[in-house]
Design a protein around this nucleic acid. Structure first.
Lengths: 151, 151
DNA sequence: GTTGACGTTTACGTTAACGTCAAGTTCAAT
DNA sequence: ATTGAACTTGACGTTAACGTAAACGTCAAC
């Protein structure tokens, strides 16, 4: 094994790589999401920290709070290993999966509506008479949501 | 047509139906996301407002900010209708779709990892020697992320 | 006629997730 | 020996998305 896998990173290196600031990494550490090694005062990040960070940031993109992400990461730290505790972990894990699937459904529904709308707009034409926009196929006008009297 | 479609709602009725508070609806109004009719001081919500609210809340579940949701709703309000403006709308619409698809990919990746992990945990057994948890199939131990010296 | 449920506006409070100084250290380079 | 770059720890500032409380109007019910 060539020692290429034992790479370490300074806080700025890791931050830059993931497009965040050092402050963000320190914040995640404050929240107990990562705990890098120390050399004196300075933080030294290893591969495992890098993987964790990637997980955290993906969690953020998915819309989770740092708390929720922390809870999910805790699942991975089985640690002691009481038998019942293990069952709880599995249960929580499945809950998260269901939540994620629900969210995916929401996203799909949103995509579908945007898609429909996008095509509708792309196929509009001017109405000779009214000078307003109508559908190229049916000639139907658009239902606009009217702001009621901002007065 | 029986007049059942012209139903209106008080602020609390609508709020209750969607599991939010009246304050939330007023806030969305402040942000220009909905603008219900008024009877004197009081707000009267119609079907169109209800649909909008559903959209907003789904947007929230998907992880969008109220600003972003407002921008997406603006897409639907084609309004004036300059030709170039229409093209811009279509373009922005497609951008949003791509962002949502990327987010869906993230969700799928997260689901996959949780799924794998969940099955892994479900198939653990105790190691006679070490007294620690190992995989039922390979006997391999778990890689735990070690918090480094909280001292 | 007053209580209670609902509505209103105004305005300050709260939490999350950092941003943004300030003030100090450490270490290599000039 | 001093500059500069990168690190550190406070600690206060900021934005978003409401919560919460104050002070008031309205109308049906008792």
């Amino acid at each position: 094994m060539s020692g290429v896998m034992n790479e370490t990173y300074s806080i700025k290196e890791l931050a830059d790589e993931f497009g965040v600031t050092p402050r963000t990494l320190r914040h995640y550490e404050d929240q107990g999401l990562i705990s890098p090694e120390r050399q004196g005062q300075n933080r030294i990040y290893h591969g495992a920290d890098r993987v964790r960070l990637a997980w955290i940031l993906r969690g953020k993109r998915v819309g989770f709070s740092l708390q929720e992400i922390g809870a999910m990461l805790d699942l991975y730290d089985v640690g002691d290993g009481r038998e019942t505790q293990r069952a709880v972990t599995v249960e929580r894990c499945r809950e998260r999966i269901h939540a994620l699937e629900a969210q995916r459904d929401d996203i799909n529904a949103t995509i579908d509506e945007l898609q429909e709308f996008c095509e509708l707009i792309a196929n509009l034409k001017r109405d000779k008479k009214s000078g307003t926009w109508v559908r190229r196929d049916t000639g139907e006008p658009l239902g606009t949501y009217a702001p009621r009297k901002t007065a």
